[in-house]
């Protein structure tokens, strides 16, 4: 891995020098008390110690609502048109490792057999600059799902703080390499050693053990105990970097035209699996919560060899009913 030293003013230069008609920049910014990824923010925050944003950046790769095609009826003829795709590239600056890692995880489901070009185009059109993380609270557990503060999974370029004014820039992917050659050609090579903070995992668990337990415990009181407290909203799924369920609906502009859209959807909604006949295989919150945990730690791992979770802890921080998925998995793993 090629490594360079980059100064904070060189980062500032990069932001101002990227041609605005060709590049959008997505970076964390502060909104009141909380952080958010903001598009073309004039005050990007490059701070390892910042907490994760309220909501992950998946919206820029898997939008909350996306047009799949337009339909138009003229006389009795129907015509379908493809949506136009933005040509602009996206630079994600200072992505948390637990956000960056979600892209290769999501790529598995969007590319097994049938390839979702909407997701793929957006990922191919982006460059992710990850930033080593120095934050942790009682909701985080990235190390338990095979990641860590300095994990470069999903990043094209990775920054590690070296001192107050400098970062070590590591080139992770070919895309990152081309980006550095094009926009940061004059960096000095780094040959020293990096020091980083150790992550304290409050709820260490073994995800392989968890998977086996879930597979063997489809019926268990843990699902009912959580299901009765869960109020059945989709906060957890929508702030999550890896949740990817969606709905497909038609929206008319008038009687003769409209578009088919893909919208975020979530397994916690009762109507999600309800048949037109009224039959519902997951007809209680208990079953729906079991589905969420099982999908993340058993089904996805079984199918794709990846845990559908990066341990970012957002679902827990925001849960209106105070449910902590990490605690559930921790207790499962320690049974």
């Amino acid at each position: 891995m090629k490594e360079f030293i980059i100064n904070t003013d060189e980062i500032a230069n990069l932001i101002s020098s990227l041609p605005a008609d060709k590049w959008d920049i997505l970076a964390p910014a502060k909104d009141g008390k909380s952080f958010d990824y903001v598009l073309s923010s004039d005050k990007p925050i490059i701070n390892s110690e910042a907490p994760p944003s309220k909501i992950s950046f998946k919206e820029y790769f898997f939008p909350k609502s996306e047009t799949l095609f337009y339909y138009k009826r003229e006389a009795n003829e129907i015509s379908l048109t493809e949506p136009k795709f933005a040509e602009k590239k996206l630079l994600v600056l200072a992505a948390k490792p637990c956000d960056a890692a979600s892209l290769p995880i999501l790529s598995k489901v969007f590319n097994w057999d049938y390839k979702d070009e909407f997701f793929n185009k957006r990922v191919n059109n982006s460059v992710i600059i990850g930033l080593s993380c120095a934050y942790s609270d009682e909701s985080c557990f990235c190390t338990s799902v095979g990641l860590d503060r300095n994990n470069t999974k999903g990043s094209d370029i990775f920054l590690t703080p070296f001192n107050d004014k400098q970062y070590v820039l590591s080139v992770v992917s070919d895309k990152g390499d081309s980006f550095v050659k094009e926009f940061l050609p004059n960096l000095t090579e780094f040959t020293g050693t990096k020091e980083t903070k150790e992550f304290i995992d409050n709820k260490p668990f073994d995800y392989k053990k968890t998977k086996d337990w879930i597979a063997a415990n489809f019926e268990n009181k843990i699902w009912a105990e959580t299901g009765e407290v869960c109020i059945g909203c989709a906060q957890c799924a929508f702030v999550c970097p890896t949740c990817h369920c969606f709905d497909i609906v038609d929206e008319n502009c008038d009687l003769n035209c409209g578009r088919r859209i893909k919208n975020w959807d979530a397994c916690q909604f009762g109507v999600f699996t309800k048949h037109a006949s009224g039959h519902n295989p997951r007809n209680s919150q208990e079953k729906r919560y079991r589905q969420r945990v099982s999908h993340k730690f058993d089904y996805y791992y079984e199918k794709f060899g990846e845990v559908l979770c990066t341990g970012c802890g957002r679902c827990t921080r925001g849960c209106p009913a105070g449910i902590d998925i990490g605690e559930i998995v921790f207790s499962i793993s320690n049974q």
């Binding site: 489901v109 049938y114 969606f246 959807d265 397994c267 699996t273 295989p281 589905q291 089904y299 199918k303």
Partner: peptide, 24 residues
Amino acid sequence: LENRMKCGLGKCGRCNIGSVYVCK
């Protein structure tokens, strides 16, 4: 078997029974 489906492509997440996707 039948289950509620949207995509039919193994992506949208509703037709699974355990780790089995009815659509795929």
